[in-house]
């Protein structure tokens, strides 16, 4: 005798997980954080650190 059919939500079963890259691209606020943090660290903070470390002439 066949087992009774379970109540399956096919939409959930068929739904593939969203790839990590797409999750990143779909999150404007995470992109905003990346877009500000990257140049802030690599350009401004690194650049300013180099300038403040220049010895002052005596």
């Amino acid at each position: 005798m066949a087992e009774p059919t379970q109540n399956v939500n096919f939409e959930e079963v068929l739904e593939e997980p969203i790839p990590a890259m797409q999750q990143l691209l779909d999150n404007p606020f995470l992109l905003l954080f990346i877009g500000i943090a990257t140049p802030a660290v690599l350009y401004i903070i690194w650049g300013v650190m180099e300038i403040v470390n220049i010895p002052v002439a005596k």
Partner: peptide, 17 residues
Amino acid sequence: SRAAFLLYIFFLQLASA
């Protein structure tokens, strides 16, 4: 195309140097 825009978000501003 989206990945190319992502490269802009990461790196485009650094060209200021």
